[in-house]
Design a protein around this nucleic acid. Structure first.
Length: 456
RNA sequence: GCGCCCGUAGCUCAGUUGGAUAGAGCAUCGGAUUUCUAAUCCGAUGGUCGCAGGUUCGAGUCCUGCCGGGCGCGCCA
C-alpha cells in the first residue's frame, strides 16, 4: 500500500479534532502542529522515546520506495535505493548555530516569530547580501532582505536546509572539487556521504511554483563558494521548471491533495487501450501480423507506456496543461505510436530485404525524388537538434523533430518503393535512407526513455 | 499589496537569439489499399495571435498600460 494512503488515513482521522489549525491564507490546515513535531522528531530534536513513531515512519518510507521502484522498473527508470539520499534529511541546522562565521559572506540572523502558534525559541535564516540578490535578479520592494530560513524555532531544519546540504553534496568532491568548509559539522556530514558527487551541472527538475526557492538557493550556494571549482569554473545549477497539470476546471492537480490521477492507473489504461487497438488489427485478415497472445501483451506494454511518456514530453514544459485521458493515451497523430510505427515499417523492410539478399549498408545515396530529398534533409538536422535539446533542456524540440522526420518518412514510404525500386542502385540508396531514419528514430526515442519495436 | 508565468483555429497545444503567405494534432468533410505494416497517406474547412499603444525596414515574439486566468510571497515540502 502506498504511503500516501497512510497519511490520508491519519489526516482524515484527525479531521475535526483540535489539531486542525488556520493557515495564513485563511484555510484550515490539519495536522500542522503534529507534522512540525514529526519533523523535529525525525531529526532527533523532539526528545523523549520515539521508537514506535520512528518505526512507523520507516515502514511508510519503505512502502513508498517499494512502490516507486516498481514504477521505475516498469518505466525503465534506472534509479534505485542507492540513489536515495535520505541522510540529507538529517542535514543539521545546528551546523550554522555558531553564528554567521560558517556561512560568510552570507549573514545568518535570527528571524522573528511569524505565526503565533510556534514553539518558543528563534528560527534562523540566511540573508543574501544586496549584491548577491541583484546578481540573482531578485528584486524586492524597498530592498528588504529576502530571508531563506534554514532553522526552525524548535531547532529542526527545513526544505531549504536539506537542499542547501544536497547542493553541497552534489558540487563537492574530495579531489575534483574540494570545498573549504568553515563549519566542522558540515564537513562531517559531507565525509559521511563519501565526499560528494563533484557534478559539473546539476539540473533540478522541479515545478515552477518553487522558482522562488531556487532563486534564493542558487545564489546562496554560489555566495558560499561551494560551487567554485579549482580550475576557476563553477558547477552549473539549473532549475528546469515545468508547468502544472490542470484539471478540467483549470485548477492545479495537486499530488498531496490526493485527487490527482495515479501514474500506475494511467499506465494501466494506456496499455489496455494499446492492447485493444492491437487486437482489433489482429482480427482483420488484411492487417493481422500474426502475433501470439504474449507478443500482443508485450507490444501493448511498450506502446502504452511510450504513449504516456511521449504525451508528457512533447509539450513545452513551461506551460501549464489541461490533463486529458484521451490526449495522454492517444494512438493517432503526433504520438509515440506514430513514431514506433514508422520505425517498425522500416524494420519490416530490412527483414524482407535481408530475405531477398538486397540488404546492405554503405554506398551512394541518390536523391532524385522530392520525398527522398525531404527525408535526407531531415536526417541531416539530427545532430543539431540533439545539441539544442541538451542545451535548452526542452524535450519537446526533440519530439517535434522526430514527428517531422517520421512524417517525411511516411511520405517517402508511400511514394518511393524500396525493395521494388526501378533498379538495384536506387534500392540500395533507399535502403540506406531507411536505415539512417531508423537509427535517428531509435536514438531519439531512446533519449526519452522510449523503447522501439521491431514489429507492431 | 509585491513578484513570476500564461492568453495563438471549435478543443488541446507548437511557434528555439524578431524575418517571407502564423503551424500541428484532435474534431468535421472528401479521397487513396492487386505493390515493402492503412496505428498510414493526400486534400478541404477553420485564426483580428486577449485589448490598446510604442520600438523596428519587419512584432505571436521586444517595451508600456489595461482586461482575463494560474502560481508564489519569512520557520510546509
Amino acid at each position: 500500500m502506498p504511503a500516501y494512503r497512510y497519511v490520508n488515513a491519519i489526516e482524515s482521522a484527525a479531521n475535526g479534532t483540535d489539531v486542525v489549525v488556520k493557515s495564513s491564507s485563511g484555510s484550515t490546515t490539519p495536522l500542522s502542529e503534529l507534522s512540525r513535531y514529526v519533523a523535529a522528531m525525525l531529526q532527533g530534536k523532539a526528545g523523549g522515546d520515539n521508537t514506535q513513531e520512528l518505526e512507523a515512519w520507516r515502514r511508510a518510507k519503505e512502502a513508498t520506495l517499494r512502490e516507486c521502484n516498481e514504477l521505475y522498473r516498469r518505466l525503465g527508470v534506472l534509479l534505485n535505493d542507492d540513489d536515495v539520499r535520505g541522510e540529507l534529511l538529517r542535514a543539521d541546522a545546528s551546523a550554522c548555530n555558531r553564528g554567521s562565521s560558517g556561512f560568510a559572506p552570507i549573514q545568518v540572523r535570527s528571524v522573528r516569530r511569524h505565526h503565533g502558534h510556534l514553539s518558543s525559541g528563534q528560527g534562523r535564516a540566511l540573508y543574501l547580501s544586496r549584491k548577491a540578490r541583484r546578481h540573482a535578479g531578485i528584486q524586492r520592494a524597498q530592498g528588504d532582505p529576502l530571508p531563506m530560513i534554514i532553522q526552525k524555532s524548535d531547532g529542526a531544519s527545513l526544505y531549504a536546509t536539506t537542499d542547501l546540504a544536497a547542493a553541497l553534496f552534489r558540487c563537492a568532491h574530495p579531489t575534483k572539487h574540494p570545498v573549504d568548509l568553515k563549519t566542522p559539522a558540515l564537513a562531517d556530514m559531507l565525509a559521511k556521504l563519501g565526499g560528494g558527487l563533484g557534478a559539473d551541472r546539476v539540473i533540478y527538475h522541479v515545478g515552477s511554483p518553487q522558482k522562488l526557492h531556487f532563486d534564493m538557493l542558487f545564489p546562496a550556494v554560489h555566495a558560499l563558494g561551494w560551487s567554485r571549482k579549482p580550475d576557476g569554473t563553477r558547477t552549473l545549477l539549473e532549475h528546469v521548471s515545468f508547468g502544472s497539470v490542470l484539471g478540467e476546471d483549470r485548477k492545479m492537480l495537486r499530488t498531496r491533495s490526493g485527487d490527482s490521477v495515479k501514474l500506475k492507473e494511467l499506465l494501466e489504461e494506456a496499455v489496455d487501450r494499446a492492447e485493444k487497438q492491437l487486437r482489433e488489427t489482429e482480427s482483420d485478415a488484411d492487417k493481422k501480423r500474426g502475433f501470439s497472445d504474449g507478443e500482443i501483451r508485450q507490444v501493448a506494454e511498450t506502446v502504452g507506456i511510450a504513449a504516456v511518456k511521449y504525451a508528457d514530453l512533447c509539450q513545452n514544459r513551461n506551460t501549464d496543461y489541461v490533463f486529458s485521458w484521451d490526449k495522454m493515451l492517444a494512438l493517432q497523430g503526433n504520438t509515440a505510436p506514430y513514431l514506433l510505427y514508422a520505425y517498425a515499417r522500416i524494420r519490416s523492410i530490412h527483414r524482407k530485404g535481408a530475405e531477398s539478399g538486397s540488404a546492405g549498408q554503405g554506398g551512394t545515396i541518390m536523391l532524385a525524388e522530392p520525398a527522398e530529398r525531404d527525408l535526407a534533409l531531415a536526417i541531416l538536422k539530427f545532430p543539431e537538434v540533439i545539441d539544442s535539446v541538451a542545451d535548452a533542456l526542452m524535450p519537446n524540440y526533440l519530439c517535434e523533430y522526430l514527428y517531422d522526420l517520421a512524417g517525411r518518412f511516411m511520405t517517402f514510404y508511400e511514394n518511393c518503393p524500396v525493395l521494388k525500386a526501378p533498379d538495384a542502385a536506387i534500392a540500395a540508396s533507399r535502403l540506406r535512407l531507411c536505415d539512417l531514419t531508423a537509427r535517428a528514430l531509435k536514438l531519439g526515442l531512446g533519449l526519452m526513455g522510449i523503447r522501439t519495436l521491431e514489429r507492431m
